[in-house]
């Protein structure tokens, strides 16, 4: 479930989690949209925050009202009003599309051209909650999300906004461990050369193998490993393909990848050096 697959997203007939926009720099950016489930969680957190603010200030007001009747109570009603109509608009408008709940779930509201949300859009999309809420608990909003695409509720459609999931921006690690892997013996394989795409696929799989358990990783790798072994007419150990398909894929990768001549180890060194360097960068 990651972006940038080579199949155009329009051609996949499923609910699309990704939105794309084209920037003025002619770069196409992909966004991971936030669906109703995540947004419900964020809403629940915000609801709790608003409820607590109203309840806690209510207690303060009750205490203050003993000495000073009237005014604290009036202020409390204003706070209540603000929590009802202003909380979302103000936090999205002033904190670049984030409320406390959205922040907790790394969601952000942006304009659908990719720009930060404007103040008026924040106001509009949140005033229109009153319509999305109808007839009870965001029914219209949910229906709109299902039919408008991009999970837009009515407020999003009118304000030209969308809610996206933000990822932690992290440079992916190179599969460093490949350095130590021996290429396959040329005498064990035929003349078949795997396509560049296949090698890229293997590389990505190995890059991300840490998200899988060892067993599941081998299980998934065995499909491709089996096919490749057949195509390559692999004559080496059977057990390599059958018991350690991930290792087999790694060796195929090392064998055929043009730049895997194992001359540079400084990528790993840079990786290790990154933490101290970050501190020095902050200084200037």
């Amino acid at each position: 479930m990651d972006a940038n697959t080579s199949v155009p997203l329009e051609k996949i007939g499923v609910i699309d989690l990704y939105g794309t926009i084209e920037t003025p720099e002619n770069v196409v950016l992909t966004f991971r949209l936030a669906g109703p489930g995540l947004r419900l969680w964020a809403y629940s957190i915000d609801f709790l925050v608003r409820f607590l603010v109203i309840a806690l200030s209510g207690i303060v007001v009750m205490i203050m009202s003993i000495g000073l009747p009237g005014i604290p109570m009036g202020m409390w009603l204003l706070i209540w009003f603000f929590m009802e109509w202003g909380y979302f608009a103000a936090s999205e408008g002033f904190f670049r599309g984030k409320t406390i709940g959205k922040h907790a779930l790394s969601l952000r509201v942006i304009q659908d051209e990719g720009y930060p949300i404007s103040f008026w859009s924040a106001l509009l999309r949140n005033f229109l909650r009153a319509a999305d809420f109808l007839p009870f608990f965001y029914c219209f909003g949910f229906i709109s999300m299902m039919f408008a695409g991009k999970f837009l509720r009515l407020g999003d459609i009118a304000a030209g906004t969308m809610v996206i999931q933000e990822r932690r921006v992290k440079l992916p690690r190179e599969p460093i461990i490949l350095e130590k892997i021996q290429p396959l013996d040329r005498t064990d394989i035929g003349s078949f050369v795997p396509a560049h795409r296949t090698l890229v696929l293997i590389e990505e799989f190995l890059e991300r193998r840490f998200v899988l358990t060892h067993r599941r990783g081998h299980e998934m790798a065995s499909i491709l490993a089996g096919i490749l072994a057949k195509k390559l007419d692999f004559q080496g150990q059977e057990s390599l393909v059958e018991d350690y398909p991930m290792a087999f894929l790694a060796r195929v990768y090392v064998t055929f990848h043009p730049t895997m001549s194992a001359e540079d180890d400084d990528d790993a060194a840079a990786e290790r050096a990154q933490k101290p360097r970050r501190k020095t960068v902050v200084a200037y």
């Binding site: 950016l29 992909t30 990719g114 933000e166 921006v169 992290k170 590389e203």
Partner: peptide, 20 residues
């Protein structure tokens, strides 16, 4: 150049933040 989704995703997110 088809250098894999990991790197492309990383840069995509960098550009997105920068764009923002």
């Amino acid at each position: 150049r088809d250098w894999g989704t990991g790197l492309a995703l990383y840069l995509n997110d960098l550009v997105t933040k920068g764009h923002n």
